[in-house]
């Protein structure tokens, strides 16, 4: 039997197919673009799942086109993180356009969660726009920021305000790697207060596309002063969790 989990996020669509034992058979990712269902059809092309669970902001749209059930990103990330790091008690997921902090019972069930939404403040989209403004590739933005000797304080979290703050810093001749570090610090500060509100203790699993950023990884570990696990491919955790939930359906 093949069980699929598809996570239709704001920036990327992730597909994971597992077998009955939860072993990963297939993993795919595509840009969400402007016609997500077209991308979904492509990505699902020869996946041949027997049962599918959709998650992410596009889950309800998926349900209309394909035979599937849906779960929220919160449940999916919690399930995926639990299998990867069974001892963890918290999940921090920073995706393209929202971020969430989840605290878990020891059983892995969701205890509490918080979601930051409504604007792209402190999310992947924010970092992407800032990287572009500073002339860095998003893939190496974190490494560049880590190369700074000191950071610059960035007070705005709103993407629009932060953009003008960055512009004025550039005009002042500030080192762009220092600005980059300042931007990462402000995103990390926000993420830390969110996770501390929801899950004040225990090991943390850092998921979502932003978890690939080396500077975010290191700032979070430092500011949280706890063990922060980053899965090998953090952007697949939601889809993996959904696939596992699909395999567990009665």
């Amino acid at each position: 039997m093949r069980f699929a989990g598809i996570d239709i996020g704001s920036r990327a669509i992730k597909l994971v197919v597992v077998d009955s034992a939860g072993k990963i058979l297939l993993k795919r990712i595509a840009d969400t673009g402007f016609d997500p269902m077209e991308e979904v059809k492509k990505i699902m092309n020869d996946a041949r799942p027997d049962h599918t669970i959709a998650t992410g902001y596009g889950r309800n749209l998926f349900e209309l086109v394909f035979e599937a059930q849906t779960v929220t990103e919160i449940k999916a990330h919690a399930r995926g993180a639990l299998v990867l790091f069974p001892q963890a008690l918290a999940v921090l997921d920073i995706g393209g356009q929202d971020s969430k902090a989840i605290s878990l019972f020891e059983s892995g069930k969701v205890k509490k969660f918080e979601m930051n939404d409504r604007c792209a403040a402190g999310t992947g989209k924010f970092l992407e726009i800032m990287a572009k403004n500073l002339g860095f590739a998003i893939e190496t933005f974190g490494d560049q920021a880590l190369g700074a000797k000191k950071d610059v304080n960035i007070s705005s979290m709103c993407t629009v305000f932060a953009e003008s703050e960055v512009t004025s810093l550039i005009a002042k001749g500030q080192d762009r790697r220092e600005i980059a570090l300042g931007l990462h610090s402000s995103v990390a500060r926000r993420a830390v207060s969110m996770i501390n509100r929801v899950a004040p203790e225990g090991e943390v699993v850092f998921t979502g596309g932003v978890a690939r950023n080396s500077c975010m990884q290191s700032l979070l570990a430092k500011k949280l002063n706890r063990v922060v696990h980053v899965p090998e491919e953090p952007q697949f955790v939601g889809a993996f969790g959904a696939a596992l939930l699909s395999s567990e359906m009665p």
């Binding site: 779960v71 929220t72 990103e73 969701v110 979601m115």
Partner: peptide
């Protein structure tokens, strides 16, 4: 909706 669904899942 996502938040409420997550609450009900709990």
């Amino acid at each position: 909706r996502t938040k409420v669904e997550a609450l009900l899942e709990m």
